[in-house]
Nucleic acid binder design. Sequence first.
DNA 1: CGCGGGTTTGATGATGCTCAAGCCCGGTGG
DNA 2: CCACCGGGCTTGAGCATCATCAAACCCGCG
Lengths: 193, 193
Amino acid sequence: MFELLRTHVRKRVDLTDEEFDVCTKFFIPKKIRRKQFLLQEGEVCKSLTFVTRGCLRSYTVDGAGEEHILQFAVEDWWISDLCSFLSGGSATMNIDAVEDSELLLLEKPARESLLAAVPKFERFFRLLLERHYLASTKRVVDSLSASAKDRYLSFLSMYPAISQRVPQSQIASYLGITPQSLSRIRHEMASKP
Amino acid sequence: MFELLRTHVRKRVDLTDEEFDVCTKFFIPKKIRRKQFLLQEGEVCKSLTFVTRGCLRSYTVDGAGEEHILQFAVEDWWISDLCSFLSGGSATMNIDAVEDSELLLLEKPARESLLAAVPKFERFFRLLLERHYLASTKRVVDSLSASAKDRYLSFLSMYPAISQRVPQSQIASYLGITPQSLSRIRHEMASKP
DNA sequence: CGCGGGTTTGATGATGCTCAAGCCCGGTGG
DNA sequence: CCACCGGGCTTGAGCATCATCAAACCCGCG
């Protein structure tokens, strides 16, 4: 259960076995079924969530009722409404499960205790935030410059695992195009490489 | 010179006059002329920059040599390549001056000292980072859902001051459209409200 | 077998791009 | 003082991309 988290954290900061064992105490395991919500718009996001099995997505719903997917998270990824979690304000995003999933939740007070117990995690969470900020910035640049096809190719190369597991219509929503357009792009890519 | 910064900080955290006076020691005033660079791609972003007069922009340059503007900053705003500043890695952005400007630079070691001297600034910088992250997320959602005209309207209502001072071609770059398209959108808006 | 979802395919239209020319205006040099 | 540039904005025509509406298709499942 915690093996994945251990190797995940160790890729970023080096921890002794003891330090990691301390850390496990602060996480709450949770299972969640396909289509179940982990967070709904208007609630407060109370935890950082690490995915050990399955797949989740975060998205907003606009005035016209359209969903816009901001992030997918499969095994070895984190997902949450960071703004809501950090600020304590209410969430603008929804998070739900694309597949039946297993999670490790790190709630806010637990995170504080963890940081106090193992200060090396300061660095870890700073890196995590940077990575999210970087990804968000990259998406802005991509949306300014790249065509739908280029954005899809970039999505495929960056998240090959995800593209296998998520319905095309949701990938289209992530890319900001209609499912029909994505279907045509795939068709074109299949005929001439 | 520091008056603007004082009221800016006080809007977010309450500081005594003494606490603020301590803080001023850590900032380096700097003047910069129109078109001069504050940061170039590949360098390391060594400081957080507060604008007291003038206007700056941050942007990336893609493979085709096109500029993509990520942010404008006029008086009372911050600008920097946050990822580079926080991680110490090399910057992917350029920052230069749209107008002759006056800045207050807070370099990394100075920021550490400031945080040690006045811990209330921890909260201030956390809020700053949240605000940037929120803005970036909002831009992603907008790019997924809104038309060029809607994005322009949203830009106007969010940054009315900036739209008066920046050439249209640069606003177009911020919106991810060509100057021609922006001109047509404006024409259409002028004829029928 | 038939239903329901996700995907594909087709036809048509809107949005925004490209290329190209013209316009406006401030700056410069004759 | 005026003619000439040059840069930024506008305007036009044609085109590429992607959306919309609609129908067909595929496939797993009751």
